[in-house]
Amino acid sequence: MEIYHKLNQIRVQNKSNTKQKVFSIVSAMIIGAILGLAAKLVDAPGINPIFDNIGGRLGIWVFVAALLSVFSYSPKIAAVKVFVFFGSMLTVYYAYTVLFLHFFPERAIVFWGICAVISPVCAYIMWYARGNGLFSHMVSALPITALLSEGFELRHAYLPIHTHYYLIPWLMGVYLMMILVLLLIIPKNKMQFVVVLPIALILSFIMIYFNVLGRIFGGMNGVF
């Protein structure tokens, strides 16, 4: 109860009825299914590789999950919404892969499955980003840190066709736009914005210096 009371001091849950909760969860499921299908369709030959390189990396999914989390009625709803989002997105993506392309990428399924399993915990914590105090500032900086770190590493991005390497600056531009959106939407006021950005820059520098993403994902990031 003491922990619950402290969390309520950071951010108070929004009042909602059952209909509103169900609608928000179903909406997250539909969004996940649509994005899962879109991510699979842009993975086809002849499609500009910039779309596949966006959908096949963590950044876009961190971005969407962060928005779904912070704009939920409560941390519990945030956890359910994000889990349902990833569940529907991955189900559609890999169902299409197996049923229509007759390919079963076991390693990739395990990797993204683990991401989906831990996503509710991340969403629960992320919900407090629009709260008050240092904890909220730190939480707000986490998705921005992930985007900054992965966006910086895009300079080493592998694009199968050499002539497509000119797209790397465009990919970085997409990451920059996602970062700006999070910076403008998540912080509740200018003061939080001023605090969050330096925290994200420091954390991303640490992640890049110690190659945290590379050590954690071991080359799996960017592979659906």
Results as ranks from 00 to 15, higher is better:
M1N: 00
E2Y: 11
Y4R: 13
K6S: 11
Q9T: 15
R11V: 05
Q20W: 01
I25N: 12
V26E: 13
M29F: 06
I34P: 06
V42I: 12
D43F: 13
P45W: 07
G46R: 13
G46I: 11
I47L: 08
D52Q: 09
D52T: 03
R57M: 09
R57D: 06
L58I: 04
W61Y: 05
L68E: 11
V70H: 01
F71K: 14
K76Q: 07
F85H: 08
G87M: 11
M89W: 13
M89L: 15
M89T: 12
Y93Q: 07
F103H: 15
F111G: 03
V117H: 00
V117M: 14
I118H: 06
P120T: 09
I125S: 08
I125T: 06
A129S: 15
A129P: 05
G131M: 10
S136I: 03
A141H: 01
A141F: 00
T145I: 01
L148W: 05
L148V: 04
F152P: 02
L154P: 05
L154V: 05
A157K: 03
L159C: 02
L159W: 06
L159F: 13
L167P: 05
P169S: 08
W170N: 09
W170S: 12
V174H: 02
M178F: 07
M178C: 04
I185V: 14
I186R: 00
K188R: 11
L197G: 04
Y209E: 09
G214S: 02
G219D: 11
F224V: 03
